[in-house]
Nucleic acid binder design. Sequence first.
DNA 1: GTCCATCTAAAGCACTCGACTTAGTGAAGT
DNA 2: ACTTCACTAAGTCGAGTGCTTTAGATGGAC
Lengths: 240, 240
Amino acid sequence: MTSTPRPTRGSRTRALIVDVAERLFAERGIAAVSNRQIGEAAGQGNNSAVGYHFGTKADLVRAIVRRHTEAMEHRRAELIAELDDSAELRDWVGCLVRPVTDHLASLPAPTWFGRFLAQADAEPTLRQVIIDEVAGTPAMRRVVEGLARLRPHLPEQVRLERGAMARILIVHVTAERESALHDGAATPRATWDDTARGLTAAICGIWQVPADAADTTDADADDAPDADAPRTAPTRREGA
Amino acid sequence: MTSTPRPTRGSRTRALIVDVAERLFAERGIAAVSNRQIGEAAGQGNNSAVGYHFGTKADLVRAIVRRHTEAMEHRRAELIAELDDSAELRDWVGCLVRPVTDHLASLPAPTWFGRFLAQADAEPTLRQVIIDEVAGTPAMRRVVEGLARLRPHLPEQVRLERGAMARILIVHVTAERESALHDGAATPRATWDDTARGLTAAICGIWQVPADAADTTDADADDAPDADAPRTAPTRREGA
DNA sequence: GTCCATCTAAAGCACTCGACTTAGTGAAGT
DNA sequence: ACTTCACTAAGTCGAGTGCTTTAGATGGAC
């Protein structure tokens, strides 16, 4: 437990900035929010408070993620510990899904972390930051191994593909639900718990597909067989 | 066929702007690219060429999408026409997946449309534009009806949820593959055709999950049972 | 109680932004 | 040949940006 030694003035400001930045990033997108706006929204008269406490914007993003990873990693380790030898696919997939949904449910409403993750996923460089921070943890590696052990006959490529699909689904389904919650719009699921059930079921469905049904032809062929097809649709005038 | 009547000077410029904008949006994100940058990259000395030809940025996004929708819609109608009464789940799901992957395969490499779609998906307002343009077409509605007919026992909520999951997977899996292609990185699939196979198999897996396995408890309960849990992780200093 | 590193406030700088104005170009229509 | 009008070039404007500097405030260590 890295217990906070003493909440100095600076650490409180940093926490405030992280809070505000997470919200603004989730709402407007990461690239669209300036450090100035974050500083102002955090009540910092200072122009460059963000630049002072965090170096680059990527560092700020990392700080935002880190505030959440510990709780999720802890929950993931818990779920893994509950598994016994009879653990089946559903249980292991739950170790992917539940840490996220449970964490979102545990945060004070309204939450922003779901949409923030989706936004960070849009920027390729930041996506790597997220993957490193969230998916590179020890518990996460154990889950990946567990899934591989349950599906030993799947080619490595297919396992990677399905892992990526699971990640995409978890990130964007939770983000869309969080967004709908915030807008007061209809959601397919009533609670985060139900959302976890739906996500787990879907990801199980993906992993249950037999290998040959999704088999690659393993062709060395490169892409784009007819690469010079003209772009037919005429560009219509749009403006006033 | 809306045959181009005469490629005037303006229409050529517009097409060029649309080209350049699609690329820049895909690379850097939509909010991060200014109209100025697009105009300059398109060789327009004019500051506000983009503003002149297209009104707002949303209009430009719509124009970019429209250049692709016709081909995809046509392909989707083709695929539907090939279906007979014996059509099963895999065939209908193919009508979701193939129009996108086939279209990407038909474009001259490198393509940008996949990443562009993913970027547009990040901005909530633009996502609605995309959904309206791509998912609101006649052929698309027929596919949704076809899927519903094959899974009549699924609650409407679950059908909506799985439709959203299919959309998310198609958009982001193709975007990540396109991105990897562009970076020369490894891809789980060798060709767009293989990608379509993998996507179709996964989405079929999702739709094959029985309803009760993903059933909602249908609770009226609102969210966040313990909404005031503290955010435990201490914010560590990041900067230099 | 004093000291001093840490943190915040405030202002300046060169730059880019969208929106707008004005002038100029060139091809189609007559 | 001339007019017309859609289009392009070029520049201006205030607002906003990241980055840097300087001065002042805060609060824990001694």
